[in-house]
């Protein structure tokens, strides 16, 4: 199972989406969806390439009254 997941993670998004689409809607409908899936795969590819360094610093709440200080 773990090997399968690792393999899935290494596959391009397009292939993964096609696999999901085929599992959800059947291979025939998945083929019909090909264009939309290709667009989505391209979009997801761009997002995943962008890296994950997007987190803003967490707000500093020290000294703010809360349950613990009440």
């Amino acid at each position: 199972m773990r090997d399968e997941m690792q393999r899935a993670e290494q596959r391009p998004w397009g292939q993964m989406l096609e696999t999901f689409a085929a599992a959800l809607y059947g291979p025939e409908r998945a083929r019909e969806l090909e264009t939309e899936i290709a667009r989505m795969a391209e979009a997801l590819e761009r997002l995943s390439e962008e890296g994950l360094d997007l987190w803003d610093a967490a707000p500093d709440l020290r000294g703010v009254p809360g349950e613990e200080s009440a």
Binding site: L17, A21, L24, R29, E36, I37, M40, L44, L47
Partner: peptide
């Protein structure tokens, strides 16, 4: 098609 592919978008992405 948009709805069906939208359902495939991973939550994390």
């Amino acid at each position: 098609a948009a709805v069906e592919t939208g359902l495939l978008v991973p939550a994390a992405l």
